[in-house]
Amino acid sequence: MRCKRIRKKLAAYLDGELDERQKALVKRHLLECAKCRKEADLLGRISYLLKDRPRIKPTLSFEADLWRRIYSLEKEETTKKETTLYLLKWATYIILPAAVAAALIIGVFGENLGEKIASFESISLEEEYLSSIGLDSFRDFPPGSLSQAYFSLIEQTK
């Protein structure tokens, strides 16, 4: 059990990442336990083996390639900005006036249309009433005649 706990600390011990107390604890254990000592030796060899791997050098064109990417990025961003400005310009000069004009037209004609609908509705109601009492067929009498006066009276009582 003690070995298991110590082994989990071995990597940190080898990397110099333990505090003084833990370091002393592991060190003491390693002096006593051959198995853990062997394990520590193997873990140390791993770091050594990995550190030994060759490092590479960036190519000579690294910085030039980077700047090329930066320029193309900036160009892209400038194009995006220009497109946005162009659209805003369109919005100011064409789309906005067009929208205002459309709103005005709808406003004016919309009002007339409303009136027409309202009058159409009242005519329909009147016709519906005359037809319901069966007098719609007698409606068109000459003006000034007795029948016309009679129908006027009926309509006033509605």
Partner: peptide, 8 residues
């Protein structure tokens, strides 16, 4: 086989 000087 790795040359390694322990260190602990």
């Amino acid at each position: 086989g790795e040359k390694y000087n322990g260190g602990f």
